[in-house]
Amino acid sequence: MPLLKIEQLSKRYGTDKYALDTIDFTVDTGEFVAIIGPSGAGKSTLLRCINHMIPMTNGDVWFNDTSTKALSAHKLRTHRTQIGMIFQHYNLVNRLSVIENVLHGRLGYKSTVAGVMGWYSDAEKAQAVEILQNLGLSEQMYKRCDQLSGGQKQRVGIARALIQNPKLLLCDEPIASLDPSAAKIIMDTLKDINQRLGITIIVNLHQVDVAMRYAQRIIGINSGKIICDAPPHTLNPSIIHEVYGSEAGELILDFGEQNAQA
């Protein structure tokens, strides 16, 4: 039984051309999927349609064998609690402390009053501390987020998603604003979460080599359509060029090394 089934999904902004054009794919529990494609191909829109941050125009998203096409406001909140999301710009409340930002991940489970007042149980606080320790942020726990480095902020973002106890993590360009060493830490962390906790991960990436190294499966999209959907070792430069709609030799790709490592 797949965890996620995207069925004939289309998205159109106003009367523009389709940002997503009848997308079909399924993701099984425990998979690590990378989505690659040029800017404006529809990668972000696709992720945001899965948790309904952007309403879809046509089609359906099945999650846990349930259609999410017409969810009530309450059901929608429940749907979102099961899906963690990580952003390129971390999207933290910068003036609050690290631990407060992590606990925000629990708000989806709370009544409006408890959420407004910020009432968190001791168990939730203990879980936040534990997650932060695992991510190597125990010393930063009470620091304000605007004092952290980019890599640390992204780890806070991951912690906020993990405390939701999600079945699925959606990562929208998680390393696009990070330097190479911070980016490696983040990707290793995601890989670890995927393997140790069995959480399914879908990650949008700009770096083809990173996608090849970390993902079990790569979906390439261009102009809202799926161009390829295959494990990394079956991809070759001509498919990648098709995804990016470019002539051979116009991309910074290092296939020889990738294949040698694989």
């Binding site: 909140r77 749907h79 979102r80 963690g84 952003f87 409340v93 629990r106 409006t112 407004v116 939701q164």
Partner: peptide, 18 residues
């Protein structure tokens, strides 16, 4: 941050307050 909290399933007023 509002986008992030909406994605966690937080309610409207919780997003405003937090």
């Amino acid at each position: 941050s509002v986008e992030a909290l909406r994605a966690t399933g937080a309610s409207y007023f919780a997003i405003i307050a937090q």
